[in-house]
């Protein structure tokens, strides 16, 4: 057992010694500060008669908008529509990205040949594909799924390749020596060895996909979180707009936290090393 040395800050708040409690308390404090700044900004708008109409962007009206938005199902519908596109797009990116990454990691020829085109493709903003996607795909949903997939495939592929680069070849020899078959090599050696890196890649991909999703939904479609924002603006219901923006932030944060938990769960890299 290693002894935990209390960080200097914890001395002032002895009850904050437990890292879990500490993170929670500081998280709540940080969010409260954000709320206060938001509220102060709203008060500033309120001081100037020219901007007074925008005070509905403030935290008060925003939180008051939630009951309506929940009751009429608009949050639920928007989240389901966006979630479907996200999930489908990410699924495609994972299904394509991991094999590409494995190829990059295992075959030197493939890695050298694919490096330039992949780096080039990676640098194209996903939104630059938008007009093309709209022309190619008959349905908006498909176009958006394509955009999410193409945005998130690269972090996954590159992270998978990086994970494979760290594999100790002796692990395969040891496994073979102890009677491992090809499926064992994959499930018992390769996948656990790279799980950490793949999940890190998926976390990055998720961040990119979530950022691409909203602007993609501002065009064409009539459902989803992006559409909900646009719709709120057009109907001048500003409190609904900020409420939806908040929902986007909260869900993004939640999804990222799930990834962090999974990464921790599958990380075998030594804490001290």
């Amino acid at each position: 057992m290693t002894s935990v040395v209390a960080p200097a800050g914890a001395l002032a708040f002895p009850h904050l010694k437990s890292p879990g409690v500490r993170r929670l308390v500081y998280g709540v404090v940080g969010l409260s500060i954000m709320l206060i700044i938001w509220e102060l900004g709203t008060l500033l708008l309120d001081l100037n008669p020219a901007t007074r109409t925008f005070t509905t962007f403030g935290p008060g009206p925003t939180f008051r908008a939630f009951p309506t938005l929940i009751e009429d199902g608009s949050i639920y519908k928007a989240v389901v529509a966006s979630g479907y596109r996200m999930g489908f797009g990410l699924f495609i990116a994972i299904a394509i990205g991991i094999p590409i990454g494995i190829l990059m990691g295992r075959s030197k020829r493939f890695r050298e040949m694919s490096n330039s085109p992949f780096q080039l493709l990676r640098m194209i903003s996903p939104l630059a594909w938008m007009p093309l996607a709209v022309i190619v795909y008959p349905e908006w949903d498909q176009a958006i799924i394509f955009l999410i997939a193409i945005a998130s495939v690269w972090p996954i592929a590159f992270a998978t390749a990086a994970g494979l680069a760290k594999i100790d070849p002796a692990w395969f020899k040891v496994a073979r020596n102890l009677g491992a078959r090809a499926t064992h090599m994959l499930t018992q050696v390769m996948l656990p060895a790279i799980a950490f890196d793949v999940l890190t890649g998926i976390r990055l991909a998720l961040g990119v996909a979530w950022i691409v999703l909203v602007p993609a939904e501002l065009l064409g479609v009539t459902s989803g979180l992006g559409y909900a924002i646009k719709d709120a603006r057009e109907t001048l219901s500003y409190s609904h707009l900020t409420a939806m923006v908040l929902v986007i932030g909260v869900i993004g944060y939640f999804l990222d936290s799930v990834c962090v938990v999974l990464i921790k769960r599958y990380s075998w890299h030594h804490r001290g090393a």
Partner: peptide, 12 residues
């Protein structure tokens, strides 16, 4: 069964 110079344990 062979045992190598380094343990090569599976760290996960």
């Amino acid at each position: 069964v062979m045992m190598f110079q380094a343990p090569h344990l599976f760290p996960w």
